[in-house]
Design a protein around this nucleic acid. Structure first.
Lengths: 241, 241
DNA sequence: CTAAAAGTGGAAGACATTTTCAACTTCCGA
DNA sequence: TCGGAAGTTGAAAATGTCTTCCACTTTTAG
């Protein structure tokens, strides 16, 4: 049987592997005292671990405890949550972009789209914070905006190719993909500790439904950009600003 | 074009229409003083409105203000949130059951299943609290348990019929329906104020994917009962116990 | 080595919400 | 009508976070 969705083979591991702060958007910040730099790294390491497991809502006090540092130090270094997220997720964006670019090189454009979605979830399964960030902060922060402008065109292209190849239904748009990613993201959150691979099943169902072969026209339209932004911004309502 | 999903016509309105506390699970409680009874009704009415719009997380103080009653009164009457939810949602269950039973009488079993899902969302669109209750409290409370034992067999039957008719894929189970309902429920939450009917589009996609005609076998298995319970219980993590 | 600058910790204050309770009010039955 | 049980109220205590602040420590430059 042809594996239409390419859902059985696993992708090469894309989890975070090192490099805590070598070069980021704020890589040009004023140099810190040696002890301060050390603490900064410990805070980032602690935050990375905690946020990957428990999401964006972990308290500063908990990060401080894990990093073996006072709360005040965390506030001094990252006065806002967004400053922290910026450091944490800046380079993770490249991983997503890479996934999309690689998917564009796949011979069969439909397989490419499937692969993009699959790898996306494999990446996000390992990092709840990243998932919440990409969904909930879609456009509200500097980094969120950068994420969108880098990733969205690639998705649009993936969609167009798959449609040109006659495999993806013509009445689907780039924003439909975003919505579907968000829908399945919710499932990952809920199912992760129980059955971490369950999303593959429902991704397969959805992909099956997106193919050309069968069915009537889908009701409604793909949401336009402002709608999409609003919807995504509301999806994971972050308790803490 | 045949309207496979029957997604265009709207169902008759099933919103809550009256009867604040005539007979419920605790309909046999000791009689209250007249003023107490009146306050109780006002609290329930206020809570119903607020919770339908804003979800299960509205504070007691806000309910009290809306009901024009002291906070203490709310606590006296409903010492736990679950006691309140019990009153609020007891009869809403019947609406869901009714939807399922009606769907079972539809001639084409596939149409029946589609209709069940569609009406379910129409009901839940109007009541965010109900949605959160049905998802998040799946089995943790008395009423939640009752909900499951009443609704689940009906869904199982709907699924079996649709499969016997050769329209629903054989590798789908009752619990898959539950997961899909939950996935789309998340979308409703996010999209309601922006584009309240958007869920119809993605329901159509999913239903399309669930039909027999195309595609390989779906990976994995439908989750079993304990898995499903855990997953649903985690889906909407309620801030307040 | 020393002094100033930079950095630190964590108690205390601010805040938002939940829960209790003692003084007060209303209702019911005799 | 009246006594007392039932009910109400809202201020205050409890709770759980988030954020600030300053006396103290560490680093660095000279």
């Amino acid at each position: 049987m042809e594996d239409v969705f390419n859902l059985v083979e696993r992708s090469p591991d894309l989890r975070y592997t090192g490099r805590v702060s070598s070069f980021t958007s704020s890589g040009d910040r004023a140099p810190l005292r040696r002890d301060a730099e050390r603490n900064r790294s410990r805070i980032l390491a602690a935050a990375r671990t905690l946020i990957a497991v428990r999401g964006l809502d972990v308290g500063y006090d908990e990060i401080a405890r894990e990093a073996d540092v006072g709360v005040g130090t965390v506030y001094r270094r990252f006065p806002t949550r967004d400053a922290l997220f910026q450091e944490l997720f800046y380079d993770r964006l490249d991983a997503v972009v890479e996934i999309a670019e690689e998917a564009l090189t796949v011979e069969d454009p439909w397989q490419g789209l499937c692969q993009f979605m699959r790898r996306n979830f494999e990446l996000q399964s390992a990092d709840r914070g990243l998932r919440e960030f990409l969904l909930g902060r879609a456009d509200s922060t500097e980094l969120g905006h950068r994420a969108r402008t880098r990733i969205q065109p690639l998705v649009t292209e993936l969609v167009a190719h798959a449609q040109a190849a006659g495999r993806l239904r013509a009445d689907l748009g780039q924003s439909d993909i975003a919505i579907i990613l968000a829908m399945l993201g919710g499932l990952i959150d809920a199912a992760l500790p129980v059955e971490p691979e369950l999303w593959r099943r429902y991704l397969a169902i959805v992909l099956n439904g997106m193919q050309c072969e069968a069915g009537d026209e889908f009701p409604g339209q793909p949401p336009d950009q402002p709608q999409l932004d609003q919807i995504l911004a509301r999806w994971v309502l972050p308790r803490r600003a």
